[in-house]
Design a protein around this nucleic acid. Structure first.
Lengths: 266, 266
DNA sequence: TTGCTCCTCACGTCACGTGAGGTGGC
DNA sequence: TTGCTCCTCACGTCACGTGAGGTGGC
């Protein structure tokens, strides 16, 4: 017999979620103490609880999970397949939405020229800061200096141009900025400077030439153009500062899922 | 000055939505009658209302719309770009979710063999029924007979094998079934039999050989395999009954968005 | 005795949809 | 006079998260 807290630990569900599942009858504790209302779960209930957690991670609604929990293998598969169909429609809707959005962001301007290129693995020694949009420029420069000194102090040298990574998308206009220099594998990070490795990937990229202060709208159109092409990314977007008035916008793309045979297997 | 009903008609928003926007201060009527509380909107407010509707269609949250409504062109573009980034992440998440789902549905079985082929335009004379899963077989056969007789009555002939289309995905296991025969352009539909045209497209397809009663799990794995490959569809899935114990599963795919240049434009 | 765990309400989330019940204007 | 339009509550949606306020067990 497990108390709700131990059961939560064992299953990966939260205590509040377990109470909720009890309320709606999805997963009722094996025994409830009539004196104090304490819930007690049997060890055999762990399996169901884990199934619930897995199916929730796949965004199945609780009422459907309730059905699948008592279904046979065929029913289970059918439920998942139907859900997959719905998720695929949602994904497709989002996709079309993106294309519309991109067209709006591009506005009357011509789309930014995009090139696909193989980007090698990037090992970046960088500081990470949360900054608002108008602090990006200054924060990047500070970061480049900080990391450069940090590298000099330990006798290491950058192996490439200064680079900043952006993780954007929150509502209040804040960005997670990770800015620094590429280094070779010998360099290791500490509390001040983090060293992260980003795997090689095909990347959408754009060569920007002009004053860096005027790069922001171009970066936005770059983003819109990539998204509008239906490309999917799985790493943050990068700006590589190559020289005065010359930077490269780089956005590593997600690997396509297993390719399909366009002729039937023999 | 427009009453709320007329304003709703003019803008494409619902009356309830307009009251909601008033409550939260997003779009306050130009004048409210102190006697009876009637809302009166100025014609000049139509533009803002339409902007709100458009941005809602792009799934922007209302608080962000409130900001963009008073933003300059740059701010507007920035807001859309940030939203696009979020939507892209959601789309990407859905996509990965699909791949996991597909793997689960496929289970231990090997994935169904899929071939990509060009499907010509399909003009189908069919009856449309809402059926539950276990009625699909019987309902299809009835539909094929009905449409066949209907064609004979007007001296027309099928131009191909009987075909059924499925629009699935609702929660209670109901399917919209559209079953009948391909016909040439001369045939027109009436109240009994609808004639719809589906455009030519590249389609994922699978040749099924075996008793039709045992096709259902294969169809599910076909769906899972297609979705798991990251393919996107925009037409319902088809079953073409070619002969005894031989059918073709066909799923026309969405056109990919504008292709990208993999070398830089000169 | 002190933390720690557990309990039950009850509100908030997001953008409205959907009645219920009632009133004013053509 | 009869519809039609408008009004204000108020609940429901989905799956919990997050306090508030209080109690039992080691």
């Amino acid at each position: 017999m497990l108390t709700i807290g131990r059961f939560a630990d064992a299953t990966g569900l939260t205590v509040r979620a377990l109470r909720h599942y009890d309320e709606i009858g999805l997963l009722v504790p094996d025994h409830v103490d009539p004196q104090n209302g304490y819930r007690h779960y049997a060890e055999a209930q762990v399996a169901d609880a884990v199934t619930i957690r897995r199916l929730r991670a796949l965004e199945l609604p609780l009422d459907e999970i309730a059905v699948l929990l008592h279904a046979d293998a065929d029913g289970f598969r059918a439920g998942l397949a139907a859900h997959g169909y719905r998720v695929a429609e949602e994904a497709s809707d989002k996709h079309m939405l993106l294309i519309e959005l991109a067209a709006l962001v591009e506005g009357g301007d011509s789309p930014v020229a995009i090139e696909l290129r193989d980007e090698p693995e990037l090992r970046l020694a960088a500081v990470i800061r949360q900054v608002s949009q108008d602090e990006v420029g200054a924060a990047s420069e500070r970061a480049f200096r900080t990391v450069h000194e940090w590298l000099r102090d330990r006798g290491a040298k950058p192996t490439g141009s200064p680079t900043s990574l952006f993780r954007s998308g929150d509502r209040e206009g804040w960005h997670l900025l990770e800015a620094g220099w590429p280094v070779d594998p010998a360099v290791e990070g500490d509390e001040t400077v983090a060293v992260h490795t980003y795997p090689a990937a095909v990347a959408a990229s754009h060569e920007y030439r002009g004053p860096f202060e005027e790069m922001h709208p171009v970066a936005q159109r770059f983003i819109a153009t990539v998204l509008g092409r239906g490309l999917r990314f799985d790493q943050p977007i990068r700006i590589v500062y190559i020289e005065e008035e010359h930077a490269r916008l780089v956005w590593p793309l997600a690997h396509e899922p297993r390719p399909i045979h366009s002729s039937p297997p023999s």
